[in-house]
Amino acid sequence: MTSLNNVSLAQNIWQQLLWKCRTFSSTFTTVLIVQIIFSVLSSGSGSSGGSYGSLLYNESIYSLDLLFIISIFSAIMLGWLLATQSIRNDNYSVVTTNFTETVSTLLFLVVLSIFTVFSALSSLYITVFTRLLFFDQVMVIKSALFEISTLFIFLIFVLIAGSASYFAKTLFDISKITFLLLTIVIIYSMQTGGISESTFFEFFLVQSMGEMLGKVLLVLTIFWGLTIAIRQRREVIRR
């Protein structure tokens, strides 16, 4: 580390995190604008209808589902973008090593995920409230208006999506063949093994909170550890 001052590792990472929050502040607005657009354009998350004998019903649902899907996609996109070479070159404009650069970017992903969750929640509240104000229709509240567990699940999936995509881009940069093979294996197992997105969700959504937390931490550790390891290796083989 070439620095005139003696800076500890934690301090360095913290400083870089703050720097990234400022420099990449456009990622926050991107997430926000996408969420606002989808909240405004869609009238709720969906609707279901049907009949029960002479009873016909039509239900419009305002839920976090749509915002969740959008957040996952934006996390995947931003995770990929954060690992691109141009942004990584930007990251070297502050005093850094490959290790602190990667760690602080991953921490920035955490900040971004937390922001995504709360902005999704705000978007839902604002949409529902404006609807209540301007439409004269009684709305049925079908769940608690604020649930920590929901937010937590939201957060971990957004975070995993972001980390996975960051890792994927890192892998893509170092070895396109490996990336291609991995993609083929995943697609092949999804086609033949009956593995789908729901299998992925079911893997994490287990009854016991401890088990779920363990699985999440395990997966995040694998992604983060591999990402950091690959980045370290790149430092050595620079030509």
């Binding site: 009873l55 019903y57 239900e59 649902i61 839920s63 589902d65 969740f68 509240i141």
Partner: peptide, 18 residues
């Protein structure tokens, strides 16, 4: 039975899809 149309809007602050 008289046919009845029942329209309503609901709020679910949770992840129904999961």
């Amino acid at each position: 039975e008289e046919e009845m149309q029942f329209d309503f809007t609901s709020i679910q602050v949770n992840l129904e899809m999961l």
